[in-house]
């Protein structure tokens, strides 16, 4: 049973009179516990596709099933609950909440979305902060830590609710290549250990070199699916 199934998926934006077809009739499937990336030139529709999978946006036509749910039919509130239950997000700009400490940022989804009790939250957060390597920074505010550390915190935040799927739109674009590699390595480990699916969108060769499957987009059209080096059976 595939985690994600897209069939003839299209997304058209209308800007005034002009219609922009960001994604054109794309079909693919992604299995659980995969490590995949969408690649393609700027404007090829990578972010659009990730937003559709992430249940942040609705397709214009076609069907999309994520974790057995046809997400297009969800209301705003249902979509929010669905995201909280199944998805994790990692952003290019980290998007940590500036008024919360590292610990509190990771705590946020458990506290504000899941309403988990304090004891359980602590049990989840501390090991996770250790795994991503920011436990010594846990009481600092985002403005007090480096970009690499911020993205590690963001990974911890995305994983803390045990999602089935993590979506990362250009997660390494604001990191130097060495840091980027470390961050990818962490995600890779989490995928192996927890069986969580990671979907990236990227230009970064470091990521491209690490993923199992590469979906190439061009002008909103899926032009190729290739196996990457990260594939176990290669």
């Amino acid at each position: 049973m595939s985690l994600i199934v897209a069939k003839d998926l299209s997304k058209t934006y209308s800007v005034g009179e002009i219609e922009v077809e960001a994604v054109k009739s794309v079909s693919f499937a992604i299995e659980p516990a995969s490590f995949v990336s969408f690649i393609g030139p700027s404007g090829s529709g990578k972010s659009t596709l990730l937003n559709l999978i992430g249940c942040l946006d609705k397709p214009t036509s076609g069907t999309l099933t994520v974790a057995d749910v046809v997400t297009a039919g969800l209301t705003r509130k249902e979509a929010a609950i669905f995201r909280g239950d199944n998805l994790g997000f990692i952003f290019q700009d980290f998007n940590l909440i500036p008024v919360l400490t590292v610990y509190e940022n990771v705590e946020y989804p458990l506290l504000m979305v899941k309403n988990a009790p304090a004891e359980e939250r602590k049990k989840r957060i501390i090991p996770l902060l250790e795994t991503v390597g920011v436990i010594d920074q846990k009481d600092k505010y985002p403005s007090q830590i480096s970009g690499g550390h911020k993205q590690r915190v963001a990974i911890a935040r995305a994983l803390v609710t045990n999602p089935r799927l993590v979506l990362a739109d250009e997660p390494t674009a604001n990191l130097d290549s060495k840091t980027a590699f470390k961050v990818i390595d962490i995600m890779r480990k989490m995928k192996d250990e927890l069986g969580i699916t990671f979907i990236f969108s990227t230009h970064d060769q470091a990521i491209v070199g690490e993923v199992e499957t590469i979906f190439s987009l061009h002008d909103g059209v899926l032009v190729g699916i290739t196996s990457g080096k990260g594939r176990d059976d290669v």
């Binding site: 992430g54 509130k77 929010a80 995201r83 997000f89 952003f91 998007n95 909440i97 946020y108 989804p109």
Partner: peptide
């Protein structure tokens, strides 16, 4: 606005 987008994406309910 971006912070609102972030917490909404994470699953924070509109009411919250």
């Amino acid at each position: 606005i971006r912070e609102i987008g972030t917490i909404a994406a994470i699953g924070t309910l509109p009411g919250t």
